[in-house]
Design a protein around this nucleic acid. Structure first.
Length: 257
DNA sequence: TACGCGTACAATTTTACCTCA
DNA sequence: ACTGAGGTAAAATTGTACGCG
């Protein structure tokens, strides 16, 4: 499974080239082969007669779709209502088996689509039509590819965002742990007053840049708004323990008891 | 304002292909 | 070597929402 995941990384749908073509536009299915078929022997040993590029579904209406793509850009589902959309193809109800054969894009097709997607992740009708023509696909297929590609991109981005948030959460948890320890240490110091009087200020003692005073327990009990803001601003200079805002003055709460 | 059309998107289904027992 | 089950990615479908003329 891992191999597959690597191979298909980020939807770079580089399918196995079952239809090796020397022709860059390779679409061996183009013109001459429309309606033709080849015998495919798959890895699992099955052999089947399969239209080149699965264009039984695809190729048949390519031309009429091209015509329709501009005037009534299609192809798109919402414009087909009233009857089942998978029946719209051809009108004639050929074998249900072949009516939804899935096309596997060739490497070249995928590469071209990817390149185009890099430039713009949506297509206007003219671009769609041109690309479809270039690839020997139906405009609808190009459209679907872009839709799915956008979905993959979004999913990937969501995963990245999730990972960032996860790390952020871990950092905050760790910092919280450190601050809790600090609180405990300060409490322990408070229990021995002599030591407490001689101690150096705690690392989290903050100074308000607007009034230039150190925050003391009484201040922090009813902090003015600008104090809170100021503390957040100067926090970065207070050392490694002070790296995130949400728990700003908590350690000082320890002095209240 | 209602309506039809075209498009994008989310969710889902279907298909092709891979790995492994 | 062959086969079927299970899993994954991606092509395709379906339903919905939105903007525009």
């Amino acid at each position: 499974m891992m191999m597959m995941i690597e191979k298909e990384d980020l939807g770079l749908s580089l399918s196995l080239n079952l239809f090796p073509t020397s022709n860059p536009h390779h679409l061996s299915s183009s013109s001459s082969s429309s309606g033709g078929a080849c015998i495919i022997t798959s890895m699992d040993g099955k052999s089947e007669a399969r239209p080149l590029f699965g264009i039984d579904v695809n190729r048949a209406e390519a031309e009429e779709d091209e015509a329709a793509a501009l005037s009534s850009p299609n192809s798109t589902v919402s414009s087909v209502s009233g009857r089942k959309r998978n029946e719209r193809e051809d009108g004639e109800d050929e074998d249900a088996e072949t009516s939804r054969k899935k096309l596997r894009l060739s490497k070249d097709q995928s590469a071209i689509l990817e390149d185009t997607f890099k430039d713009h992740n949506t297509l206007n009708p003219k671009q769609k039509l041109a690309l479809a023509k270039q690839l020997g696909l139906r405009p609808r297929q190009v459209e679907v590819w872009f839709q799915n590609r956008r979905a993959r991109t979004k999913l990937k981005q969501t995963e990245v965002d999730c990972e960032v948030l996860k790390r952020c959460c871990e950092n905050l948890t760790e910092e919280n742990r450190k601050l809790q320890r600090e609180v405990q240490e300060l409490r322990a110091l408070k229990l021995s007053p002599n030591l407490y009087m001689q101690m150096t200020p705690p690392t989290t003692l903050t100074m308000c840049p607007s009034c230039e005073r150190f925050a003391v327990p009484s201040d922090s009990a009813t902090p003015a708004r600008h104090h809170l803001k100021a503390q957040a601003q100067i926090r970065p200079i207070l050392g490694p323990l002070a790296s995130s805002a949400p728990v700003l003055h908590r350690p000082l709460d320890a002095f209240r008891h």
